[in-house]
């Protein structure tokens, strides 16, 4: 692990995007930022600018109008980056199976690295998911190898 990778692991900047969720998971993500769970002890900061972010936390089943915005945000983020789908409905569509305006999960639109289950996902689980994601992030090369696709899709 080189210095840059090490530094990146200690200061993951997070972009949170609500892709049509019910808010349940969003307020849990906000709870993570507040004193009881305090995600900042891992160096994580919530930012609003996709170009600053290393981690994209997505909640919600992705609705049709949001799909474009989500793809856009993902493309704007610089490599290396990871995507964490927070909540059951972000992972698989969950309870919104019969809803006509839902895509049924974040992985229908962009590649996902970590799935965080729970409806709503608990703050502990979200933090765990983030840490798992960071371990993955640490293994990613800082620069993509020549000819490699940036941010290869999840298997």
């Amino acid at each position: 692990m080189n210095l840059i990778q090490k530094a990146r692991m200690k200061s993951p900047w997070i972009l949170h995007f609500n892709a049509g969720s019910c808010n349940g998971c969003d307020i849990e993500i906000l709870s993570c930022l507040t004193p009881v769970y305090d995600i900042e002890r891992f160096g994580a900061v919530n930012v609003g600018n996709p170009k600053h972010a290393d981690v994209l936390l997505v909640t919600g089943p992705v609705n049709r109008r949001n799909e474009r915005v989500l793809r856009n945000l993902y493309d704007q983020m610089l490599d290396p980056k990871i995507v964490v789908a927070v909540g059951t409905c972000a992972s698989s569509g969950g309870v919104f199976q019969n809803c006509y305006n839902c895509m049924g999960g974040v992985d229908k639109v962009i590649p996902v690295d970590v799935y965080v289950p729970g409806c709503a996902a608990k703050p502990e689980t979200i933090i765990e998911g983030l840490i798992l994601g960071l371990e993955k992030l640490a293994k990613m090369p800082s620069k993509p190898k020549k000819g490699a696709q940036p941010a290869e899709a999840r298997t």
Partner: peptide, 8 residues
Amino acid sequence: QLPKENPS
């Protein structure tokens, strides 16, 4: 949207 469409 049935679950079997889910790739994972």
